[in-house]
Design a binder for these strands. Structure first.
Lengths: 210, 210
DNA sequence: AAGTTACTGTACCGGCGGTAGAGTAATCTG
DNA sequence: CAGATTACTCTACCGCCGGTACAGTAACTT
């Protein structure tokens, strides 16, 4: 049992430790300013070892994004799952989910995947197609999640005026990305949760006017 | 006349040409991936010449940000000035201004200062305090502009429910920053203007309910 | 005539991303 | 037990890039 997976575990453990070190460093000072050499020094590995795992620095970016998209999905599943568990209604479950999301985003100060997504987006010429597609898929995941939910809500609460529901779906990720940028620029972690709460107010006003 | 400013003009012209080349390159592939050497090659200057003008790469970042904050302010003055010129009322002038802003942001595909602001925000450890403070001042300028406007509007159109007007002011820059990130990630320049139009709808719904 | 501005030219430095290729200990597979 | 695979190490090297040092200089200002 121990022997069976010792090497495989060692391999994936080293990789994982590299990703953790990279995450800390990148969130602190950006991807470009994070050197491979500092990562291998922290983990206690050689340069060859790094390139064995990731091929090049873009491979590291890709692995970091994959890791975070998964984490992202899990968080959204959690908050909206809990919102729906507390509420039969699709609208009110969603509103509770948004509230939970705001609280969650207020807690994790700056360790959000959006940081990575935005950061990579602005250096995307550095990376290969895979990284850009991954980034795209992250946005699409949010869009689809919110779009289907709004379609469900609109069935029960048809808005009296025509609303751009697709745009409203994108507004969630827009506010998260933008909120992270502003929060970072202003060193104020309260900005993002406040934006999410305003978004919740907006959604409520659309489907429950008056 | 000609002679009086020939040298000074030459100096500032070279600087300006460097900034223009840098802007193109940075918007295309990011700041870190833009080398000083490619800029001086384009402008036809030596490395010493570059460092004469900017001191170091952070100096270039600072100059780019300054240039763009000024441009930014001019655009906002323009659109909301035009909005107000077409309308006596502070709310309706603002709503027209937002519409004009959406149109303007739809036209300039990706050459917006927000790109720079966000890009620099995610590499800010690279830069000195000045660059970070400049970035901050950009956000604060938007916040103050919108806050005073909302105070003015709220006098004439007191909202029936309590609204987070400060958060609503920040929502504008949040949506612009986030919209640029998403627009870039998705290669879709329609995302940002749509978000601004949704913002306009939100503002209208708050002050003109029903 | 002296000083300032806006550079050029040369030479050099260390860090970084990346490559090449040989070697190896531990582990898995047949 | 043999052979293949995994997860690396070690050594040596490359070119680019940001940055420094410093001397020189043509155009222009005072």
């Amino acid at each position: 049992m121990q022997g069976r997976t010792a090497l495989a575990r060692k391999g994936s453990e080293t990789r994982e430790r590299l990703l953790e070190a990279a995450e800390r460093a990148v969130l602190a000072k950006g991807f470009a300013a994070t050197s491979i050499e500092e990562l291998i020094a922290e983990v206690g590995i050689t340069k060859s070892g790094f390139f064995y795992h990731f091929g090049d620095k873009g491979g590291l970016a890709k692995a970091m994004l994959e890791r975070h998209l998964e984490h992202d999905r899990a968080i959204l599943d959690d908050v909206f799952g809990r919102g729906d568990a507390l509420n039969e209604d699709p609208l009110h479950g969603f509103l509770v989910g948004l509230q939970l999301l705001a609280e969650m985003l207020g807690q994790l100060k700056e360790a959000h995947p959006g940081c990575l997504a935005a950061s990579f987006t602005y250096q995307d010429q550095l990376f290969n197609r895979e990284v850009r597609d991954l980034n795209r898929s992250g946005v699409l995941a949010w869009r689809e999640r919110f779009c289907t939910r709004f379609a469900l809500i609109a069935e029960r609460y048809p808005p009296r005026v025509p609303v751009d529901l697709d745009g409203l779906a994108d507004m969630a990720s827009t506010l998260v990305e933008g909120g992270l940028v502003l929060g970072r620029a202003m060193q104020d972690s309260a900005i993002l949760p406040r934006q999410i709460r305003l978004y919740r107010d907006f959604v409520r006003a659309i489907f429950l006017p008056g």
